[in-house]
Design a protein around this nucleic acid. Structure first.
Lengths: 191, 191
DNA sequence: TGTACATCAGTGAACGCGCGTTCACTGATGTAC
DNA sequence: TGTACATCAGTGAACGCGCGTTCACTGATGTAC
């Protein structure tokens, strides 16, 4: 019994991981139940043993993405925050190419407003956590009005990666990321 | 003959306008040919007298959006550029609410990378035009390295509106926009 | 000017297809005695 | 320990539906004489 339910939980986690990856690269509208189950090595009929509907899956997958995202934020902005390193990493070529496993904000913010309510709420929580991490790092640097500055910094980070990924030319995209990397470091006083 | 083809051109323009509005608020994947034709007051079968395929329509609709966008940019950043007014307008509550007629970048940048090639190319041209407008305004202000700064400013403008529109709470969204408005004005020296 | 014909924008039924979801079933695994 | 039974994760065929696209047709409009 214990083995069986542990097995089921592992399968569910595998489906969620695949969904999180697929949604990050194709959008929440861009994945189908059948395709997703195939990626997880299963047939589509079994899907409803794990989730009550496609919308239910999307909401949980958003959660999953922000768990990964929160770990990334914590790694750079945890107990001894290093905002400069965070900015460099967030806007790096590595992050630019890591669409399937990277931060969900650049790919999904634009369609968040059209997501089912449950997914949208979880999305907002994820955005809040991200912003808070930056705010704490700015406080540690002794910045005045760190709440306002954190929003502004977050807007540029997400906007830069979103626009970079929209560009058909990698060179232009990387130059664009570098412009924001330098702009951010300079205005925070990390240049 | 002349009357007939003028009528056809007007109908095509009406379809494109409806498509541009629908795509801005629902995404390029979020509209159907039948629904769009209904919005334009026609039946779906007539669609193929105007466009060769759905992808063809999307590419032309993207074009249309950026024509509107370029007019907005020109209004603020044309012969006598006023970057402060442009920033205030771009991040205003009016712009926040004007999803169907506003700038296509916040809603569509995230999915631009998944668009059909023709649409993606036109998207990139639109992004370039937007960036150039900001760069010219920064040059007029006598800013050094205006090309880099223009990219950075654009990233924050688009990122701020994208994230604001993702938020379920209007108050939080407007506060977020205001944070970037102030952040941008300050770092350009327009405070 | 009046009539007969040609054009073609738009109609609406039909197509094949993939979608989300349902359901009867299978067969491996855990439990009871 | 061995056997008979219960459970249930996963299978795969089937459903109704909306999609993009096609096509034979209509009827208003422009052209020719």
């Amino acid at each position: 019994m214990a083995d069986k339910s542990a097995h089921k939980a592992k399968t569910r986690a595998r489906i969620l991981d695949e969904a999180a990856a697929a949604i990050r690269s194709s959008g929440a509208q861009g994945i189908s139940v059948a395709e997703l189950m195939k990626r997880a090595g299963l047939t589509h009929g079994g899907f409803y043993a794990h989730f009550s509907s496609r919308d239910d899956l999307v909401a949980h997958a958003i959660d999953r993405m922000f768990q990964d995202s929160a770990m990334m934020v914590a790694r750079f902005l945890g107990d001894t925050p290093d905002l400069g390193a965070f900015i460099d990493y967030y806007l790096s070529e590595t992050a630019y190419r890591m669409v399937e496993r990277g931060c969900p904000l650049p790919g999904l913010s634009g369609e968040a407003g059209r997501m089912p309510p449950a997914a949208r709420t979880r999305f907002a929580q994820g955005v809040g956590g991200f912003r808070d991490g930056i705010e704490r790092a700015l406080e540690a640097l002794g910045k005045a009005d760190s709440a306002t500055l954190a929003s502004s910094v977050m807007a540029e980070l997400v906007g830069a990666m979103t626009l970079a990924r929209s560009m058909p030319d990698d060179g232009a995209a990387l130059a664009f990321l570098d412009a924001s990397r330098r702009g951010l470091r300079e205005r925070i006083g990390l240049a």
